[in-house]
Structure formats: C-alpha cells, structure tokens
Amino acid sequence: MKDRDQDNSETEATAPETGSVGSQLHAAREAAGLSLTEIATRTRVPIRHLEAIEASNYSALPGSTYTIGFTRSYAKALGLDETALLTELRQELAEGGYQNVARTPEYEPADPARVPSRPLAWGAAALAIALIIVYFIWRSFALAPVAEGDAAKPVAEAPIKDQSGPAKAETQIDPSGQVVITARETVWLKIYDAGNNRLYENEMKAGESFTVPKDANNPMIVTGRPQVLDVTIGGKPVPPLGNGERSIADVGISAAALLARKTEAAPVQNATGASTGPAAESAAQQ
C-alpha cells in the first residue's frame, strides 16, 4: 500500500490509510483547508449528505447507489484515489447491511437545504392552469373572423398563418423513432422500466450516449442534473428533461412520453409571429 501511494504521489493525493471512508474524507478535507460548503459547491452534493458520509451515517442517505456516487464526487473534489476509497466503501456498506438499500431520492442539487414546500407546489400548479385558461381565451379571440375593414386583416391573418408552423414541425418527429440520451457533461443517471428492471445505471461521461430499447416497458429516468442531457427521437431533439433546479425521478422517456411533454411545452405565437413560452425563452437565451 505504501509503495503504491509513493508511486502515485506526484499525480494523485491520498487519503489516510486508517479509519472509515468518511473519516478519511474528513481528514483529507481538513488537511486541504476546505469547508463542507466549498465541497458542496464543487460537487453539487447537499451538505447534509456530505456530513452523513463523513459520519458513516449511511442510513441518512437516499440509498447505496447514491452513497457511492456522492462519495466518488467527494473523493474527486479532494483529488483522492476514488477507486480505493469506493472499494472500502462497498465493504462498509455490505458489513452494515446497506448494500442493497434503495430509497426514493430526496436531494435537490440546486437547493440543498430542502425540497419545495407543498403550498409552493400547489401554487405553481394553479398558475399553470390559469395560464392555460388565458391561452385558450386569447386563441378564441385570435381566430375569430374579422367582421369588416381591411386594416385588421394583417393582424387577423398573421396568427392563423403562423400557427400552422409549429403544427407542421410537430409532425416531423416520428413517434416510432429511436430515443437516444447523450450527456454534455459528466452526470450520474439511472434508467429503468415499469417493472423496476434496471436498463442503465452509471456515471455517464461527456459525449457518451444511451439508446433506449424500443421494446422497454414504460422506460423512466432519475438524475440530479437533467439539464446536461440531450434527448433525441429519431435523431431530432426534444425539449430538455429539466432545467437543473431540482432532480427528476420517474420521468418517462419513451418516444410517446417525450412527445407528450414536447406538446405541452410547445411555444405559443403572438399576433406578430413571435414565439413565447419556455421553449422560445430557452432558444432566445441560446
């Protein structure tokens, strides 16, 4: 062990050789003069989960898969030998009976303190319903025939003509096309079917892709960074799975499910032909 550490000393930092994985990470962090807040910023892992790892309190973590993923990110942030640490961690999990534990993830990368409150969720749902009602009211007036006068014709004709554009664009995506998920940055994700059979579970590197089997039974995904994933159907892009404000779980990624989400997120065009809505705002920012 000592010879190996000496050989790697020029390229990689090492953790103390004694104690639990959590105590080794704690000692290495203090030796580097870093706080838990700084580690959380670097890894996007909530502070409460970093504290649980350092204390070897694995029951406070979402599950063994998340524990391993969080620990890997922690070790990378400190420049430690993640392979050796993860080997020790798996042994600790097996000895403590945590190896096969899997619970619904409760972390939120963008807001480590807590998940959104129930009133906030209900408020967002009410706002969405109100926006849908306003849109249909606006659309009924926009499509109403003009009674008289030529001056209003350009305004009346513009929405009708332009609204045919998105509808035609929607038909260009083949619902039987192959769904492919590609990572723009390194991200951990898990893909499984309705029977909870794992189709993919790993840390996907930038540029790597996964092709969702067409015969998969309602394939779904869970990940903490959906904004760095590009999703295509038959080679054509669809809106992102999330904006990165929170992790996602049980999100359908079959072609039918993605097209349903795409229809809901389709932009609304105003009388001048300009698109509005989440998809248009994202395109404008790019």
Rank of each mutant, 00 (worst) to 15 (best):
I53N: 00
I53C: 01
E54R: 02
E54F: 02
A55S: 13
S56F: 00
Y58F: 11
A60G: 06
L61K: 03
L61V: 07
P62C: 11
P62M: 03
P62H: 09
G63V: 09
S64N: 08
S64K: 00
S64Q: 04
Y66P: 05
Y66K: 14
Y66E: 15
Y66G: 10
Y66C: 12
I68E: 09
I68T: 10
G69E: 13
G69S: 05
F70W: 09
F70H: 06
F70D: 04
T71H: 03
R72C: 01
Y74P: 01
A75M: 05
A75Y: 03
A75W: 07
K76Q: 08
K76S: 10
A77G: 01
G79W: 02
G79V: 05
G79Y: 04
L80W: 06
L80Y: 04
D81Q: 14
E82G: 09
T83F: 10
T83H: 12
T83K: 15
A84E: 14
A84C: 04
L85V: 03
L86E: 07
L86C: 09
L86H: 10
T87M: 10
E88N: 13
E88M: 10
E88F: 10
L89S: 02
L89A: 00
Q91C: 08
Q91L: 09
E92V: 03
A94I: 08
A94P: 00
E95R: 02
E95M: 03
G96L: 01
G96M: 01
G96K: 02
G96A: 03
G97S: 02
Y98S: 12
Q99M: 11
N100D: 11
N100K: 13
N100P: 00
V101D: 04
V101Y: 04
V101W: 03
V101K: 07
V101H: 02
A102V: 00
R103M: 09
R103Y: 11
R103Q: 13
T104L: 08
T104Q: 09
P105V: 05
E106G: 15
E106K: 13
Y107R: 14
Y107L: 13
Y107D: 15
Y107V: 08
P109E: 00
A110Y: 01
A110L: 06
D111F: 08
D111P: 00
P112C: 06
A113P: 01
R114D: 13
R114M: 12
P116V: 14
P116R: 14
S117Y: 03
S117F: 02
R118D: 10
P119N: 06
P119H: 05
P119V: 11
L120N: 07
L120H: 14
W122Y: 04
W122V: 15
G123I: 05
G123M: 10
G123L: 10
A124H: 05
A124R: 14
A124M: 12
A126V: 04
L127V: 15
A128K: 07
I129E: 10
I129H: 09
A130R: 09
A130Y: 05
A130P: 05
L131E: 13
L131Y: 10
I133R: 03
I133E: 08
V134G: 13
Y135T: 12
F136Q: 11
I137A: 08
I137T: 12
W138L: 15
W138T: 09
W138D: 00
W138P: 02
R139G: 12
S140I: 15
F141I: 08
A142D: 08
A142Q: 04
L143A: 11
L143Q: 07
